[in-house]
């Protein structure tokens, strides 16, 4: 246990939040990307966060599995949303199918904006934590002066 692990933890948090922000940016940018079929249409992307646990081997031999706190956060993967696609009747659209429908992504822009704010706030929190750890480390270097 030492201060530089805080850097790793806060760094993992910042990286995870920036991936989330990235996905949000992609979703908002593609909110109106039309397509002619359900296969080719853009779907909202969501990152899945998970805590980084201790190494499995080490954990098994601990007296209690829950005795060690995890070591930061990781992005397990990015999944596409299953929400219903937005079908609009636009017969004049060049991408319209035989019935005159155009597929639009299932991106909820309002939800994405809220997600964006949440991600940037969490990012800031991690930056604050890292800054505090930096101050603590600088402080310890002045010991005995």
């Amino acid at each position: 246990m030492s201060l530089d692990r805080i850097f790793d933890i806060a760094g993992s948090g910042m990286s995870a939040q920036s991936i989330r922000l990235n996905a949000t940016a992609s979703n908002i940018a593609n909110a109106d990307s039309a397509a002619s079929s359900t296969d080719s249409v853009y779907r909202a992307r969501k990152p899945i966060f998970a805590a980084i646990e201790q190494q499995a081997m080490q954990q098994v031999f601990k007296s209690d599995n829950n005795q060690e706190a995890s070591k930061g956060v990781q992005v397990k993967g990015i999944v596409e949303s299953d929400a219903a696609l937005d079908m609009r009747y636009q017969p004049d659209h060049p991408l319209a199918d035989e019935q005159g429908y155009v597929m639009y992504p299932n991106v909820n822009v309002v939800e994405e904006m809220a997600d964006m704010l949440s991600a940037s706030r969490s990012f800031q929190t991690n930056v604050d934590v890292m800054d505090a750890a930096k101050t603590m480390m600088q402080r310890i270097l002045t010991l005995g002066q």
């Binding site: 805080i6 948090g13 995870a16 706190a69 930061g72 969490s122 603590m136």
Partner: peptide, 17 residues
């Protein structure tokens, strides 16, 4: 320092289900 590490971990996982 150990306590700071545990709380840094809590804050990093503020959005982890």
């Amino acid at each position: 320092v150990q306590r700071a590490e545990i709380m840094a971990n809590n804050l990093a996982n503020a959005d982890t289900p």
